[in-house]
Simulated scan of single mutants.
Amino acid sequence: MAQENSSTITELVLVGFSNHPQIEIPLFFLFSGVYLVNLFGNTAIIILVVIDSCLQTPMYFFLCNLAFLNIFYTTAVVPKMLFNLLASKKVISYELCLAQTYISLLMGAAECIILAIMALDRYVAICYPLRYLLIMNWSVCVQLSVGAWTISFFASVVPLYFTMLPLCGPYIVDHIFCEVPVLLHMVCADTSLQETMMVIGASGTLLLPFLLITLSYLHILVAVMRMHSAEGRKKAFSVCSSHLTVVTIYYGTGMFMYMRPKSLYSAEGDKLISLFYAVINPTLNPLIYSLRNKEVTGNLKRLLERWRVSRIQRILS
């Protein structure tokens, strides 16, 4: 399995939850259900926005970006995790391990920026309602989306590619999937530069978007407090609450994982943290946005009713 340098590694041991074999089968069924809910929920949001013209607005365009990201992120992580929960030989190929590392870093950075863009979109909608469609036109939305993915790639994947160091044996990844903070413990050389770059990168893709989100919501709060209509204030808070819930969950776990020194690493604790932002949070996103959004649930009910009526008509004809 392990040779003298990373170029000759064929596979690594992926520990996962093998330290607790008695819970592996229950976890397999639990995470299988979570993954299916993730796929269904996020795919449903994308399909609903595509086919329903009422939802083809900037907010739901960015929500589709987030839904796609959630599907891609968990698909890079969960299937292998599920396979290893049942396998007697719990390994991961070196190529897949690297792929998971790059994907987790890219998707994490992209989610931070997209969440910031969604906060900016809410700010424009609430503070400049009459100019909203003029400011957030489709050209601007597409540019913001492309910019988010491009910046994420060059701020995360490119620096990691050029600073990746050889790994040392034993080649054991005591985690549920491969990501940067975990692999730093397996590097042969001094990792001070890599740790510094990870903190700098996290500052750019975590803190700056978080600062933009904070400023956006401060302006939103001021604008809402100035509203004379109680119904208007209630609607504004309802629209923003879903986004704030997602931001709180994601940033809380992401900042702890990527913005701390290596000395604070805890294998068991970090597995739970990673489960939240890589598996649980992407599954909660569509539930939070749909269950707390009357516009989404209302349009979904109407589409299901139309589908039911058309199906009955086909049967009768």
Rank of each mutant, 00 (worst) to 15 (best):
P286F: 03
L30Y: 11
N42Y: 01
I280D: 10
Y102M: 15
Y217D: 05
N19W: 04
K89A: 07
P282Q: 06
C168E: 14
V15H: 06
E111S: 02
S310C: 01
V37Y: 02
L284S: 01
L12K: 08
E24L: 09
F61Y: 02
G298Q: 12
Q3N: 09
F153Y: 13
L264S: 03
Q22M: 07
M197H: 11
E195L: 09
I113R: 03
S203M: 10
C141K: 01
I92H: 06
A155R: 11
P261K: 03
L85F: 00
Y217V: 06
R260P: 06
V279W: 15
S263Y: 12
M259I: 02
A230E: 15
L134H: 13
Q22K: 04
S274Q: 08
P26N: 03
A155I: 12
L115A: 01
V173M: 04
G108S: 12
Y60W: 12
L218Y: 09
Y289N: 11
F17H: 09
C188E: 07
C127G: 13
S266A: 15
I46D: 07
P286V: 02
A99K: 08
Q143H: 13
F154M: 05
S88V: 13
M136G: 02
T75R: 00
I71L: 08
K89F: 05
A76P: 12
M225H: 15
L39T: 08
Q3M: 11
W149S: 12
A267W: 04
F154D: 13
L14A: 09
P282C: 08
T74L: 05
H228D: 14
I288R: 00
V50Y: 15
Y132S: 00
D52R: 11
F68W: 04
Q194P: 06
N299V: 07
S18N: 07
N137M: 06
P286Y: 06
L184F: 14
V37K: 01
L212I: 14
A110L: 03
I280K: 13
N70Q: 07
L130N: 01
E111M: 13
Y132C: 04
L115E: 05
N65S: 04
Q3G: 06
F61V: 00
N70P: 05
F177L: 05
M227D: 00
S7T: 05
I45T: 11
C240T: 14
F83L: 10
V34C: 04
T57C: 00
D190P: 08
E231D: 07
T245H: 03
T253Q: 10
G252R: 14
L304H: 03
E295T: 03
S203Q: 11
H185Q: 08
E4F: 11
F61G: 05
H20R: 10
V78C: 08
F154Y: 02
S238H: 13
F28I: 00
Q3W: 15
V309N: 10
V173W: 04
A67D: 05
E195Q: 15
W138H: 06
N5R: 14
A99Q: 11
M227T: 01
E179N: 15
F256K: 11
I176M: 12
L221N: 07
I273G: 06
S290Q: 09
A189S: 12
V157M: 12
L85P: 00
C112Q: 09
Y35W: 02
Q3T: 02
E4Y: 13
T163W: 04
L48V: 03
K234P: 00
F31H: 09
F31Q: 08
I213Y: 02
I151M: 13
I288Q: 05
C64G: 01
L14C: 10
G147C: 09
N5I: 10
T214R: 02
I200F: 11
D174M: 03
R314E: 08
